[in-house]
């Protein structure tokens, strides 16, 4: 039973990572750096709060959350693809924009500077944290299949082949007739939708939006994308690993074995180690961050 609860809690923590990291894989495999995941998540979360509150339905929240993530992704896409702006700069700015916009509209829509009122979510009011509550939440199911679906799209569909081609060698891709900008736009908006769903999950799970509620989860997803070497299966495992470490830390909190700050560091340290190539080098897509001519 303890093991089952541990798995359930790991899964709950992993869901937003799985969504956002799926988006990270799509974006980075198409050549666009995934620094924006945090911003997409926040945009998705706020969109979900708006939709769920004013639409009185969790599903409307899901749709408007998707819209929030996709909108920020569109800003990123237009800046980086059409105007060839530096992806790192735009990426950081998108995150700042997401924080600023959600705070501004939090004041405008809900008259608060810290949180939204209670919004509709999935399942019963006080379903608790048990396994059955987990299984009845459709967002959990969507999160679980996000990575496998992205793996299938990337490796088994023509669109996936095109995404990988424009991320590795856009010039060669164009020479065989692939519309490079269109593929990149599709990939970046898909990534906004996926990461946005990560934010949607948070809002519908906690039944409210709070200021900066994503709290760095987008960067953990980016870490998982890199630590998993841009391969969906490994990225999914990385998300579960990071979530398991957090769960362990929460469950051992009383024991005070390791300070929580050291557990927080795990994803980031592992990513640095992976990039430094101590155990098998992480090699990014060749055209990642480069301007497509």
């Amino acid at each position: 039973m303890a093991a089952l609860l541990f798995l359930a809690q790991t899964l709950r923590i992993a869901i937003p990572y799985l969504f956002a990291a799926a988006g990270g894989v799509v974006s980075e495999r198409a050549g666009l750096i995934g620094l924006t995941l945090e911003g997409y998540m926040l945009g998705g979360a706020f969109g979900a709060a708006l939709g769920s509150y004013y639409g009185h339905s969790a599903w409307i929240g899901v749709l408007s959350g998707i819209g929030g993530g996709a909108l920020l992704a569109l800003v990123y896409g237009v800046s980086a693809i059409r105007f060839r702006a530096d992806q790192v700069v735009i990426g950081i700015a998108i995150n700042l924009l997401a924080i600023g916009l959600t705070r501004f509209f939090l004041r405008l829509a809900f008259g608060s500077s810290s949180n939204s009122p209670r919004v509709a979510g999935f399942g019963a009011e006080h379903a608790g944290t048990g396994v059955s509550a987990l299984l009845s939440n459709p967002m959990i199911w969507l999160g679980v299949i996000a990575i496998p679906v992205i793996g299938w799209v990337l490796y088994r569909t023509p669109f996936g082949l095109r995404v990988r081609a424009v991320g590795e060698h856009p010039v060669a891709a164009r020479s065989v007739g692939i519309p490079v900008p269109r593929v990149r736009y599709s990939a970046v908006i898909l990534s906004g939708i996926l990461a946005g769903l990560g934010g949607v999950y948070l809002v519908l799970d906690q039944h409210q939006f709070t200021d900066q509620m994503t709290a760095g989860r987008g960067f953990i997803a980016l870490a998982a994308t890199i630590f998993g070497r841009w391969d969906p299966l490994r990225v999914g495992l990385a998300c579960l690993l990071f979530a398991a470490a957090e769960t362990l830390q929460i469950q051992l909190q009383g024991a005070q074995l390791i300070p929580s700050q050291f557990v927080e560091m795990i994803p980031y340290v592992l990513t640095i180690v992976a990039l430094a190539g101590v155990v098998g080098r992480a090699v990014p897509p060749a055209a990642l961050g480069k301007v497509a001519e």
Partner: peptide
């Protein structure tokens, strides 16, 4: 809301880039 300047700062960065 003072948060509007945070939006402005982000917009300046994007517009410059």
């Amino acid at each position: 809301p003072k948060q509007f300047v945070e939006v402005l700062q982000a917009v300046v960065i994007i517009a410059v880039a």
